[in-house]
Each structure stands twice: as structure tokens, then as C-alpha cells.
């Protein structure tokens, strides 16, 4: 088990290194006119060159990267070119906001899609067909459009929920909850139906296994076989579905934050992207990759715990 954990951790670290290297190479290779961007059109060529030197952009790319990397390992991700705020500070302020939305959304997705998927697998019939229709609709409607519709309906026409803004949990739990209802709803609607369909498929695959019949022949009720044996064996594919949902929700949150004017990672990414704030963008990528690695690690551990074969390998 420890061996398993160590190997997973190592591959996570490699993943972080590879992705940050590629991203760094890509976005810094074209950061040459950043100095002009910052200083504006009226700056003289000499000013621009001085600024570029100031930012360290005149040095070879690999030198810049090694510097950045050694600083990053010590927790220093550089300074935003536009606000001069340390990137780590920016992230520390934004990440909790986005994380609270995404975790909330993942929990809702996991709960609702599992209940729907398992019920559809056992009952089939109308619920099955409904799920198919809903998943096509959910897939076809862009989540930011759903967010706009929710704003029009519940914040403009019938103002029950706040249309914009974010309240930290530490300030007011109910305020936080109310502020997140519309964004989370918009985020999860598309994913729930498709996750439910995939969970349904996984459960049906297990229900058709021979050992399910044999366990029932041993006198166990179909409910206890379902709750204990079927769910456990259907869990690994379902966990994979949820981990992919997590990544999708991270991406989706970017756009949703814009609609509801939530000061999270999304807003930071969009502003940095439009301005060309390269250190901030690097920071965003690092934070996300670490997040993804952690989630995958958790999923792997859960799978190892559930599936004895995976544990042994």
C-alpha cells in the first residue's frame, strides 16, 4: 500500500513538472511584447527595453525557467506584472472561493447522479428514458447560458437569490449558501444527467454479473446485494466519472464566476489572460495542476481501498 502511494505521488510530481514546463515554454516564448503592453503605446523604445530587462525577459528562456522553478519550489510564484501583487497572494485570495463552488458542485453531482443512476439501473422504464432525454438537453445547453437564464428568472424577474457577489463562509454561512445556489445550479445541471447515465451503465454491468445471482441464491435479499456488493463493484467506474466531472467543473466555474461576478480563480484567469499577465497565468496553471493531481490521488486511493486487485498491483 505504501509502495502504491509512493508511486502515485511520484507520478503526480512528474505530471506537475511536465505541465508547468510546457506551459512556461509556451507562454513565455511569446511574452516579448509584454513590456510594451504594460507601459502603453506612448512609451519610448528605450523605456520598453528597460522594462523588459527589469522583468528578466532579455535572458535565455531556460534560465528564466530554472529561476522561476527554484522560486516556485520555495513558494514564490513571482509578482503580477499589472498589480505588482505577489501571485501567491492572488491565489490564496481566489482559490478558496472557486474551491468552495467546485466542491459544493461535486458533492451535489455525486449525490444526485448516484441516486438517479442507481435507481434508473434497478427500475429502468420511464426514469431511464427521462434520464436519456435530460442528458441530451443538459449536454446541449451551455452552462453559462443556463446561468444567464437563472439570473433572469431568479435575480431579475423574481428576485429570490442574489444575482452577483460572493460571501465567504467565515462571514455568514447562510449568505455563502444563498450566494452559491444559482452558480452551483448552473454548473451542475449539465453534468448530473451524463454522470447519472454513466453510473447507471456501471451499475447495470454489475447487476448482470453471475455472482449477483449466486449471492441472491444464498438467501441474501436483493436490497442487501445491491447496497453492499453491487455498489461496491460499480464504485471504481463511478469514481472515475466523478473525477472527470471535477475537472470539467473547474473549467466551467471560470465562466460561471464571470456571470455572477464572483471574485474567484475564473475572474483572475480571464483578466490575466486578456491583459497578458504571464506570472499570474503561470500561477493559475500551477494551482490547478496541483489540485488535479490531488484529486486523482484521492480517487486512486479510494479505488485501491475498494478493489483488492488494484491494491495488490
Amino acid at each position: 500500500m505504501l509502495n502504491f502511494l509512493a508511486r502515485r505521488l511520484l507520478s503526480g510530481v512528474v505530471l506537475i513538472l511536465v505541465i508547468t514546463t510546457i506551459t512556461y515554454a509556451l507562454i513565455y516564448s511569446n511574452a516579448g511584447n509584454a513590456a510594451r503592453n504594460i507601459l502603453g503605446e506612448s512609451a519610448t523604445a528605450a523605456d520598453v527595453a528597460a522594462k523588459a530587462k527589469d522583468l528578466g525577459l532579455d535572458r535565455p528562456l531556460h534560465e528564466q525557467y530554472l529561476d522561476w522553478l527554484s522560486n516556485a519550489i520555495h513558494g514564490d510564484l513571482g509578482v503580477s506584472w499589472f498589480t505588482n501583487e505577489p501571485v501567491s497572494n492572488l491565489l490564496a485570495n481566489r482559490l478558496p472561493v472557486t474551491l468552495s463552488i467546485v466542491i459544493f458542485a461535486v458533492l451535489v453531482t455525486a449525490l444526485v447522479s448516484t441516486v438517479l443512476g442507481v435507481t434508473a439501473a434497478v427500475r429502468r422504464g420511464w426514469l431511464d428514458r427521462l434520464l436519456q432525454v435530460v442528458s441530451v438537453i443538459g449536454f446541449s445547453l451551455p452552462n453559462f447560458w443556463v446561468a444567464l437564464v437563472l439570473v433572469v428568472l431568479f435575480a431579475v424577474a423574481v428576485p429570490i437569490f442574489p444575482a452577483t457577489g460572493y460571501v465567504p463562509v467565515t462571514e455568514s454561512l447562510s449568505g455563502w449558501f444563498l450566494a452559491l445556489i444559482l452558480p452551483v445550479t448552473a454548473l451542475v445541471l449539465g453534468g448530473i444527467a451524463s454522470a447519472a447515465q454513466q453510473i447507471r451503465g456501471a451499475v447495470i454491468d454489475v447487476l448482470e454479473m453471475d455472482y449477483v445471482r449466486t449471492l441472491r441464491a444464498r438467501g441474501l435479499s436483493s436490497t442487501s446485494v445491491l447496497l453492499k456488493h453491487v455498489l461496491r463493484n460499480a464504485a471504481p467506474p463511478a469514481l472515475t466519472v466523478l473525477s472527470l466531472q471535477f475537472i470539467a467543473l473547474l473549467g466551467g466555474a471560470v465562466v460561471i464566476e464571470r456571470v455572477f461576478a464572483i471574485p474567484g480563480m475564473g475572474t483572475l484567469t480571464i483578466n490575466s489572460s486578456l491583459q497578458g499577465d504571464v506570472p499570474a497565468l503561470m500561477g493559475v496553471v500551477v494551482a490547478l495542476v496541483i489540485l488535479v493531481v490531488i484529486v486523482n490521488l484521492v480517487i486512486d486511493l479510494a479505488n485501491g481501498w475498494i478493489n483488492p486487485k488494484a491494491r495488490l498491483q
Binding site: T23, I27, A248, L250, G251, S273, L281, V284
Partner: peptide, 15 residues
């Protein structure tokens, strides 16, 4: 597959 596409695309947009 481990990367949220939306964010990567935003990060690379200027480049």
C-alpha cells in the same frame, strides 16, 4: 485529460 481545457485555453490565448 487531466487539464481543464477552458483554463489552459485562457492561459495560452495571448501566446
Amino acid at each position: 485529460m487531466a487539464l481543464p481545457a477552458m483554463i489552459v485555453l485562457l492561459a495560452l490565448y495571448q501566446t
